[in-house]
Nucleic acid binder design. Structure first.
Lengths: 212, 212
DNA sequence: CAGCCGTCTTGACGGTTGTCCAAATTATTG
DNA sequence: CAATAATTTGGACAACCGTCAAGACGGCTG
């Protein structure tokens, strides 16, 4: 039926629909970004839709208009978070011309991330733990984990390349190592342990040459 | 005043009080153990005191009698969990007479743990993430993390010793590595990934000789 | 301008939460 | 055995939760 409409009218209709969809999606992301603020502050367990709305410029009804569900909102938040997170070290990787340059660039970004985005990262660890209980989260979380693993792998292979070597361990092991170190440092940092950041940097600095 | 009571009477009073305290504490642990059942099933975010009580032989009032708070209960649960968890590999470490024997013993326990106590472990990861938001959890969680790091370190040093070597990395890095691998494997296992356990075992088997 | 549609606000709903308490029950003491 | 203390019960409470729906708003189209 619709398929038999004149080509022009059909194209107009389709264009209008995709425009609406884009606007709708842009609004979703806007709301997700506002929600991330509160989620990063309180964590998944203590965050309610009303709390999210109150800490933002929106009313709680809007969230229900754009998201079918609380889980739907959180999933959108996670997915949006992913996009920003995964490219963090890419510039360093592509511009570094020596091992030292890469090391220092990586360490600087690492420290800056830990100190300025601690709230977003604790939320990530929170949601990854929630995925162990809530099946609805698992797909997105596993996907993000894969992207982060690839991100670490890009750093490692570039580092190895600059020394004419090859990484000595698997992507999975490498990611597990860095993720574990970061997670531990984050907890210590949040607990006001002043040595959390320098200890992490020392550890990574010592580790990099041994794994590649 | 009480210090000047006759020695005998004082000793009796003190004995009575410690007896009461012990009984009180035993009851707390009994309740904590019941609570762990539900917490492991639902996770921190979705577990209420009433839910805990309903899934146990106790009424919800008792929990408030023995614990000042919900956080108090959870803290007690975590501490109790710790004691059981930290000694898991000790027998393997002390009885193994060769590297292979230690490796196989460790891997077997690792797989068994992942498969039979997945619920308790996801709760641990949940609570460790909560500690990033809730200061009241931090002290206990950091302490447990330290014990787990020591546990891994005992395995590594024994493994190195059996090969007349010394571990090639720090306790912190080693723990980060194994914890990261286990966490990832646990999530995949809970997501019904049949390769989660064998992949973990392969990875660890390959890793052990390279780090010691 | 009238009418429609997408967007948003507001208040209400049933259910659940942590907490508290008065009364009932059980154990312990004199 | 009586009485005092410790323990347990189950209901009441206010606050909060996610969800929903009726209607208001504003721009666009016919």
């Amino acid at each position: 039926m619709a398929r038999q409409a004149t080509g022009a009218a059909q194209r107009v209709a389709v264009a209008a629909e995709t425009l609406r969809d884009e606007k709708f999606n842009a609004r979703r992301i806007e709301l997700a970004e506002a929600a991330l603020e509160t989620l990063g502050e309180l964590g998944f367990a203590r965050t309610s839709l009303r709390e999210i709305a109150q800490n933002s410029a929106f009313t709680h009804g809007v969230f229900h208009y754009y998201f079918s569900d609380k889980l739907d909102l959180i999933c959108c938040c996670v997915r949006h978070y992913k996009a920003k997170c995964v490219t963090r070290y890419d510039e360093v990787v592509t511009t570094a011309r020596s091992r030292d340059e890469l090391t220092e660039g990586f360490l600087a970004k690492l420290a800056a991330t830990l100190e300025t985005e601690a709230r977003m990262h604790r939320l990530w660890y929170d949601l990854r733990s929630q995925a162990m209980f809530e099946p609805a989260f698992r797909k997105d979380v596993l996907e993000i984990d894969k992207s982060l693993e690839a991100m670490i792998w890009r750093i490692a292979t570039r580092y190895a390349e600059l020394g004419n070597k090859r990484p000595a361990s698997s992507p999975a092991a490498l990611y597990a190592l860095f993720d574990g170190l970061f997670q531990s440092a984050l907890l210590r940092y949040l607990a006001d342990d002043k040595k959390a950041v320098p200890d992490l940097l020392d550890e990574v600095r010592r580790l990099l040459p041994t794994i590649c």
